[in-house]
Amino acid sequence: MRDRPYYADMVSSDVDSMDYSPLVLSLWISLVATIIIAVFGTLTAYVLARKRFFGRTLLDAFTTLPMILPPTVTGYYLIILLGKNGIIGNHIYNLTGWSIMFTWQAAVVAATVVAIPIMIKSAKAAIESVDIEYEKAAFTLGKSEIQTFFLVTLPLAKRGLTAGLILSFARALGEFGATIMVAGNIPGKTSTMPLAIYSAVQSGEDQLATMLVILLTAVSIAIIYITTKISKTDRD
């Protein structure tokens, strides 16, 4: 058994009983993050693309920020926000006695925050490329804004949205800095692929490191392949 990171003691003791492999953990965390990104990223992108309101530029800049900031900085902000004594985390802890820190859910939050700007950017571009006349036509044909979004805007922006989601998934899969800040590197629980690779190298387990690296490279190449295929059919 590998050395546990020093903060492993701070969390509950069922670590060994649910020891998922880093790959399964990584895929699971990225998948959940991608689902959250699909909903909120698309919604934010739609608002940014179609609505004119005060503070729109600010929202645009704010949602881009995690793409620019070093992930450890983003992670630090998340600790301030969600930690046991954090702005939001404090209330959650007081109410439920539970803190999100060092759980797989924290890894999901880190992955979501770091990867969502990619989705917002490509989804915004995809929605903006849909001629607004289609939406106007749907309005005059009696469809509400929500109906129009699902019946017209979404299908027409589908390819750009899918590409954005795949790229976000890839980004979530590779997330390291923010994750280690808020979720730690608990084997079987929050030790995702990038973190496991780091641990393996640190502890001199070169074989394991190589195996994990090859695995992650294969997944990444598959993602690039799928993305190019999608954007190719986009042009047809």
């Binding site: 001629d131 006349e133 289609y134 106007k136 036509a137 749907a138 309005f139 005059t140 009696g142 469809k143 509400s144 017209v152 299908p155 027409l156």
Partner: peptide, 20 residues
């Protein structure tokens, strides 16, 4: 009144037929 409730038939310049 919202455009949905006006019951207006609108032929747009480029027709705006839904391509999908």
């Amino acid at each position: 009144i919202s455009p949905q409730k006006r019951r207006v038939g609108y032929l747009f310049q480029n027709y705006a037929l839904f391509p999908h």
